[in-house]
């Protein structure tokens, strides 16, 4: 459907994106996830035709569109700033793309009304964008980019700038619209929650290079490298060198002995270990299990349905655990943390 093939973009000497390749299948929701400056926006703009690639090809529905101007590509795009035309009404904004795509006057009128219905704003057609709230403007922006049935929908951080509650609401809403219209979607964000909650596939980008292209589950459970492990989700981190004891692979991190899930790993490898907070169990008493460490609670953050405990281990490192039961423990209490060997991510 969309094929980005060895896309490279230099701004003078500065490399924004280096040899990036990925594909999107028909109807798929793909997210480009990465910190600011990782090249995700440049990639999106290149697909739209707003940035000229230094190298590489972009194919849409089998056609090479690399040298086509944006207006010849049949792409829908919603911008972070919404980019609604301030001198036009909501209706005129939506009609703009339809007119430019050569729809007849009658079709334009019908489709504008349908689009307003689609985004639940049938009564706002005569408003100017400036009279709408941030969330409403984003919905109009989406309606405008979908009205002429583009081959692909590009979303450039549309939820950034909305408050948390609205953001979560808009995520569900955006997913619903995407399924309803069944439009192939490429979403760009620096927000991992956006990426994990909405996408079929996530492309993690850093320094202009793809770090991992995978399902959200795999990105979280089996990160490909330390960058992905640290950028997506929280974790407790250990480092050390692999040795074998009694046929088990273990890592000594200062005093701590950590058993690894897989014994096939070679000796003397330097590894980073990550344990997700929901995999760490906390209790006031020791169980004598493997991968069990003593620590002192430094912070308890109540997240409503669960609590996030921060603890300092004996060697001074920090561990992070989620607990759904609210144990009778408090800051400065001594506790024991343990995690099963098979939940350790080894990189």
């Amino acid at each position: 459907m969309l094929e980005v093939d060895s896309f490279t973009k230099y701004y003078g000497e500065l490399c924004a994106v280096e040899d990036l390749s990925f594909r999107i299948e028909e109807g798929e929701f793909v997210t480009l996830l990465g910190p600011s400056g990782c090249g995700k926006s440049t990639t999106l703009h290149a697909i739209a035709g707003l940035v000229e690639p230094t190298d590489g090809r972009i194919r849409l529905r089998g056609t090479d569109v690399t040298d086509l101007p944006p207006e010849k590509r049949n792409i829908g795009m919603a911008f972070q700033s919404t980019a609604l035309f301030p001198h036009m009404t909501v209706r005129e904004n939506i009609a703009y793309g339809l007119k430019m795509h050569g729809y007849s006057a009658a079709d334009v009128e019908d489709r504008v009304e349908e689009s307003l219905e689609l985004v639940d704003m049938p009564d706002h057609g005569d408003h100017k964008p400036g009279e709408l709230s941030g969330g409403q403007q984003q919905r109009v922006s989406l309606a405008r980019s979908l009205a002429y049935e583009p081959d692909i929908l590009l979303l450039d951080e549309p939820l950034t700038g909305l408050d948390r509650v609205l953001r979560e609401e808009m995520r569900g809403w955006l997913n619903r619209i995407q399924r309803e219209v069944n439009v192939t979607t490429l979403y760009v964000t620096h927000d991992q929650e956006d990426a994990l909650s909405m996408s079929d596939t996530v492309v993690v980008l850093n320094d202009g290079q793809a770090q991992q292209i995978d399902s959200p589950e795999r990105i979280y459970e089996s990160p490909a490298n330390p960058f992905v492990a640290e950028f997506v989700g929280k974790s407790t981190q250990f480092t050390g060198t692999v040795t074998h004891e009694n046929g088990q692979a273990v890592v000594y991190n200062d005093e701590k002995r950590i058993t690894l899930p897989d014994s096939s790993i070679d000796d003397d490898q330097s590894v980073s270990l990550y344990v997700r907070p929901e995999d760490i169990e906390v209790s006031p008493e020791p169980m004598g299990a493997e991968n069990e460490f003593r620590g002192i609670i430094t912070d308890i953050a109540n997240l409503g349905n669960r609590a996030e405990l921060s603890a300092t281990l004996e060697d001074g490192s920090t561990a992070l655990a989620h607990t759904t039961r609210f144990p009778d423990i408090d800051v400065d209490d001594d506790i024991f943390l343990r995690f099963p060997a098979e939940r350790v991510i080894v990189l």
Binding site: P69, F79, L84, F85, Y96, G97, R144
Partner: peptide, 24 residues
């Protein structure tokens, strides 16, 4: 971004000037 939006929405350079840039 308004100019970009106009282009992506299907307007060429000239129509972007007459419909978006000039009125603004």
């Amino acid at each position: 971004e308004l100019v970009n939006a106009s282009r992506v929405l299907g307007a060429g350079k000239w129509r972007t000037i007459t419909k978006v840039i000039f009125p603004l």
